[in-house]
Simulated scan of single mutants.
Amino acid sequence: MMMTRDAVAAPQVRRRMLAVGFGVAALAFVLDQLSKWWILHVALPCLAGTTGPGCLAPTAPTQITGFFNLVMAWNRGVSFGLFAHEADFMPYVLIAMALVISAVLVVWLQRTQQLFQAVSIGLVIGGALGNVIDRVRFGAVADFLDFHIAGWHWPAFNVADSCIVVGVVLLVAEGLFARPARG
């Protein structure tokens, strides 16, 4: 049986896309964790008590511009504080959900042959795992980017949240606007 060039190229392309996706995920994860370390230990360190949600005297917000502050907010839920319960088991539920979603995305990543999808999926995986680390360490996610206008504040977020949102928006946009491949 003779294999065509496309049949041989497909596994190589998928391996390359897997490497790209994991590379993007690793970069997103590292940037998220470095930014959180900087916020927690340099920019807005806890003034009394342990670092984390149990901080007794957090540093005051730092105004960067007229529309952007650095703040220290601990999110025990998901985006915008949804599902933020004080139940002791909730961080574990959210960790499990993030890991299951990441596993599904890894399967998708293993099958893709498109660079755009690999990058987008990598952003979501890296962001999800960055927030999982916070939940494991602190039981909550460290949010610190605060954009505001005319007294209205967008909910604080972090680098991982940004990666997740950008990755999902790119995947949805691709699904809505990509032209079907001609065969």
Rank of each mutant, 00 (worst) to 15 (best):
P155T: 10
V141G: 09
I133Q: 11
R135L: 10
A160T: 11
A156Y: 09
G130L: 04
A160W: 04
G130P: 03
V136P: 12
G130N: 02
G130A: 09
H153S: 08
W152V: 13
G130Y: 00
L145W: 06
A150I: 14
I164D: 07
V168T: 12
W154I: 05
V168Y: 08
I149C: 06
I133C: 10
L145M: 15
I149T: 09
P155L: 06
F147D: 04
D146Y: 12
D143G: 01
A160C: 02
A160L: 00
F144D: 00
A142S: 13
A150D: 15
I164E: 08
D143F: 01
S162E: 02
F147A: 10
F157A: 03
C163V: 05
G151V: 11
V141P: 03
H153I: 02
A160R: 08
V159P: 10
G151A: 09
P155C: 10
W152R: 03
V166T: 14
I133R: 08
G139N: 07
F157Y: 13
A142K: 01
A140V: 04
V166C: 14
G167W: 06
V159S: 04
P155E: 11
I164V: 15
V166M: 11
V166S: 04
I149E: 00
V165E: 02
A140I: 00
V168E: 05
A156K: 07
R137D: 15
V159I: 15
G167D: 00
G139W: 11
D146R: 03
G151K: 11
L145E: 06
A142P: 11
H153D: 04
H153R: 09
